[in-house]
């Protein structure tokens, strides 16, 4: 049974697209067939993070409007053959998305893939609403700071009221993915603690992804971090999160600061 997963946050810049690519790649690595769908019409990024920007011919809007078939718009990943991308259009805006069109495309994707992962645009407007509408599950990407947490709270409320499942009286399964977690700043009390975020949002924790150069480096070369630096801390966090999405029970570890020799010698103030 195909699962439709929306990666959403409300706030921009918290790591939705990075997380979509990484979770999609990790799920595909485990042998599942996966499609990642970019809903950020007009500001598409997922093609860049996936390294497929030079292979885009048709996009989601072309399929919705009937100008192209789904098979023409899907781009197969060069590294993992079970991973596919349905890019957004950069020249259009969110008004080109229609409820009927989105429902039809998601329905077709569900027949072809095990996982349909929708990368939501920021905000709570039409694009974000359509991205979450057909979701069975949601990954709410949150940074440990108050504005991101409040926006996530708002989005969780919408997942519970505006989705197709909510309209049928069912629940969307929601998971919290805490990204850009900086152990050093957490230790200094400059960020919300994990427990505080969990208490405010009261949804289960899918994983904690530490802030890392590896994420930036992977984005710059156009590869999901789980493929570009598989041994890095964020890659391991995303791989574990993907396993939890598939029902495995793994303990979530809170990243700790690894202090080097110099900082041990010269005390704490090295950041």
């Amino acid at each position: 049974m195909a699962k439709v997963l929306v990666v959403t946050s409300g706030k921009g810049g918290v790591g939705k697209t990075t997380s979509t690519a990484a979770l999609g790649a990790a799920l595909a690595q485990s042998g599942r067939s996966v499609v990642v769908v970019d809903f950020d019409v007009g500001l598409r990024n997922l093609d860049l993070v996936m390294g497929a920007e030079r292979r885009v011919v048709f996009d989601l809007i072309n399929v919705i409007q009937g100008d192209a078939r789904l098979s023409q718009a899907l781009i197969r990943d060069k590294r993992i053959e079970t991973l596919h991308l349905l890019p957004a259009s950069q020249t259009r805006d969110k008004d080109a998305l229609t409820q009927e069109g989105v429902n039809r495309v998601i329905g077709e994707l569900k027949e072809k893939f095990d996982w349909v992962i929708c990368d939501s645009p920021a905000g709570i407007e039409k694009g974000a609403m359509l991205a979450m509408h057909n979701a069975d599950m949601a990954v709410v990407v949150t940074n440990p700071e108050i504005s991101s947490v409040r926006d996530s709270d708002r989005i969780i409320g919408m997942l519970d009221s505006k989705t197709a499942r909510a309209e049928k009286g069912e629940r969307v399964e929601k998971h919290l993915l805490l990204t850009r977690y900086n152990p050093a700043r957490a230790m200094r009390g400059e960020m919300l603690k994990v427990d505080d975020v969990l208490e405010i949002l009261s949804i289960p924790l899918l994983g904690i992804v530490p802030e890392s150069e590896a994420v930036l480096a992977a984005s710059n070369v156009g590869a999901p971090v789980v493929l570009h630096a598989p041994d890095s801390a964020p890659a391991r966090a995303y791989s574990d999160a993907a396993k939890r999405l598939q029902g495995e029970t793994l303990p979530v570890s809170v990243p700790e600061e690894r202090r080097g020799l110099m900082s041990k010698l010269f005390g704490r103030r090295v950041a």
Binding site: I124, R150, D151, D153, R154, I156, G157, M158, D160, S161, S202
Partner: peptide, 8 residues
């Protein structure tokens, strides 16, 4: 018996 979320 559910939390009242931001914006609601």
């Amino acid at each position: 018996d559910q939390p009242v979320r931001s914006g609601q």
